[in-house]
């Protein structure tokens, strides 16, 4: 198989398959959660579930002083790589073209050198997070194979994308193909791992807040 065949394979059938698994998988996971049903709360409401829900969505997105004091590193590194991932995935022009092709929507991107720098910062933050996971005794004890797997599939597209952009090591078609393949691996595993928090995060936060809000307390 030539490099070009490889690139065509990952841009064609494999990307189709990965998209199918990602979309179907996410819908299945969300439906399964929603259809479980929740017992009707018969108690008199002491506050607004809606206000509590939205309040928590906002509050948990901002680090509070206590958490920051306890684990400032996790908060900062977490913010850095999440924002970095957002910039790299959604504001790099070649990536925007993928979304445009998939959903028909387009938006303007950032200059590629800014995205390039962001990629480096994001990779550094992810490596720092891994080192912290290894060195912090509590985190190390809590970590499972699953945690390391999702770390690998998250950082792979960043590293391969960086190599493809700078054409380091391999020829252009092969490196680009490996980058796209690594993204497909992420797409396939996302619905079935902790990475599905990308889609379930907000409803989970809303639910937590709504339950507490109904009881008239802040969560």
């Amino acid at each position: 198989m030539t490099d070009t065949d490889f690139l065509l394979l990952v841009r064609g059938p494999l990307f189709d398959a990965a998209t199918f698994i990602l979309c179907a998988g996410i819908v299945v996971r969300i439906l399964a959660i929603l259809l479980m049903g929740r017992k009707k709360n018969l108690a008199e409401p002491r506050g607004s579930a809606v206000t509590g829900g939205f309040g928590t969505m906002l509050r948990r997105s901002l680090p509070d002083a206590g958490t920051f004091h306890r684990s400032g590193f996790t908060v900062i590194a977490g913010y850095v790589f999440h924002i970095g991932l957002f910039v790299v995935i959604f504001l790099f022009v070649p990536h925007i073209l993928v979304f445009e092709r998939a959903i028909g929507l387009s938006w303007s991107g950032l200059p590629s050198n800014i995205v390039d720098a962001t990629t480096v910062v994001t990779i550094i933050a992810l490596v720092a997070v891994l080192i912290h996971r290894f060195t912090d005794p509590v985190k190390r004890m809590l970590s499972t194979f699953h945690d390391y797997l999702v770390w690998v599939v998250t950082i792979l597209p960043l590293v391969t994308g960086y190599l493809a952009f700078h054409r380091i090591g391999m020829s252009g078609p092969a490196m680009l193909a490996i980058h796209i393949l690594s993204v497909e691996l992420l797409m396939v595993l996302l619905p079935f791992t902790k990475l599905s928090h990308a889609f379930t995060l907000w409803m989970a936060r809303w639910y937590n807040g709504a339950v507490a809000g109904y009881k008239g307390v802040r969560s």
Partner: peptide, 28 residues
Amino acid sequence: ALSTPTGSIGATAVYAAGAGLLAGAALG
């Protein structure tokens, strides 16, 4: 563009969502 998928990804996503709805409903 070189970075874009060659298939019709929008249609794939719609079919996938349909299949996901059925499977999700059944699983639920």
